[in-house]
C-alpha cells in the first residue's frame, strides 16, 4: 500500500531523516520506536506534508486504485483525501470553530472527492454521535471549539474520533499514548482496534512499549538518527523496553 524509499528530509537545513526505507501492506500494523530526536515525529509530518520540512531525496509510493503515486507531490489536503491520516502528537486548538462544523467540512471534502453526496448537518449529526459513542465522548463536545480547553486525553480521543469519521486507508498515530492515563488509553486503543481492517494500515509512533500491549503491531522498527536500524516482530518492543536503545546503535 505504501512504500517509503530512501527518504531524506531536513528542517531549516538541518537533516533529520537520513535514508528511510519502509514497506507497509494493507491490513498491517507497524510500530516505530526510537529515542528522543531520532526523527519519529518528522517522519509522520513528512508523510502528511508539513510545509516546514523539505524532502531532499527519496519518494513515498502510495497505491491508489492499483496505481502508484508519489505522495510527496501532493498537497496535504490532497493526501488526506486519498486516505492519509495523521493523528497529531499535539493537536492544534482552533478557537471559534465548532467541532461539528469542522468535522462536517472535513467529511464532506472526502464525499466530494469520492463523488458521493455530501451530508447535511442533521444527517452528519447522527453519524457523528454514532462515532462518538465508539470513543465514549461527551455530547457537549459537539458544539465546543476544536480542542479548545480540552484535556490532554480529550484531545487524543478527538484525534481518533476524526480518524473514525474520515475512515482513512493509511493512518499515522503520532505518540497517541502520551499524556493518557490507563483508562483513556484503553478507550483510545479499543477505538483504533475497531477501526483496523484488512483494507487499511496503521503506523504507530511511540516512545513506550505500553501502547503496543493494546494495539498489537505486526512489525516493530527502531529509528535512530533518522535511520531504521532494526526491524522485527512485536517482541522487539519488549526487548527495547528492557534494554533501551544503546545496544542497537
Amino acid at each position: 500500500m505504501l512504500e517509503i524509499k530512501d527518504l531524506y528530509a531536513s528542517i531549516h537545513e538541518s537533516p533529520i531523516l537520513n535514508g528511510i526505507n519502509l514497506k507497509i501492506n494493507s491490513g498491517e500494523v507497524h510500530a516505530i520506536m526510537g529515542p528522543n530526536g531520532s526523527g519519529k515525529s518528522t517522519l509522520s509530518k513528512v508523510i502528511a506534508g508539513h510545509p516546514d520540512y523539505s524532502v531532499t531525496q527519496g519518494v513515498i509510493e502510495y497505491e491508489v486504485n492499483f496505481k502508484k503515486i508519489n505522495l510527496l507531490e501532493l498537497e496535504p489536503e490532497e493526501r488526506a483525501r486519498e486516505g492519509i491520516f495523521l493523528a497529531f502528537q499535539y493537536p492544534v486548538e482552533i478557537p471559534g470553530v465548532s467541532s461539528s462544523v469542522f468535522l462536517r467540512a472535513a467529511f464532506n471534502e472526502i464525499c466530494k472527492h469520492q463523488g458521493a453526496e455530501e451530508m447535511d448537518p442533521l444527517e452528519f449529526d447522527e453519524y457523528l454521535r454514532k462515532k462518538m459513542k465508539l470513543l465514549d465522548m461527551d455530547e457537549k463536545f459537539i458544539n465546543r471549539p476544536v480542542n479548545v480547553d480540552f484535556s490532554g486525553g480529550e484531545k487524543k480521543r478527538n484525534e481518533i474520533l476524526q480518524m473514525a469519521i474520515l475512515n482513512p486507508r493509511f493512518a499515522v498515530l503520532d505518540e497517541t499514548d502520551s499524556g493518557l492515563d490507563i483508562d483513556s488509553m484503553r478507550i483510545v486503543a479499543d477505538g483504533v482496534n475497531k477501526l483496523k481492517s484488512k483494507k487499511n494500515a496503521i503506523l504507530l509512533i511511540t516512545h513506550y512499549q505500553r501502547l503496543l500491549n493494546y494495539i498489537v503491531p505486526d512489525f516493530v522498527h527502531i529509528l535512530v538518527n533518522g535511520k531504521i536500524v532494526k526491524s522485527a516482530g512485536k517482541e522487539l518492543a519488549l526487548k527495547v523496553e528492557e534494554k533501551g536503545y544503546d545496544w542497537l546503535s
Binding site: G49, H50, E75, P76, A80, F88, I94, A106, P145
Partner: peptide, 26 residues
C-alpha cells in the same frame, strides 16, 4: 492551524476562511 485543517482534507483557501470565521465567531 492551517496545516491541521489541511490534514483533515480542507484546502488551504478554505482553511484560511474557516480560521478567519473562527476568529470572528470567537
Amino acid at each position: 492551524e492551517i496545516f491541521y485543517l489541511q490534514t483533515r482534507c480542507i484546502p488551504k483557501s478554505q482553511a484560511v476562511e474557516m480560521l478567519a470565521r473562527g476568529f470572528v465567531d470567537d
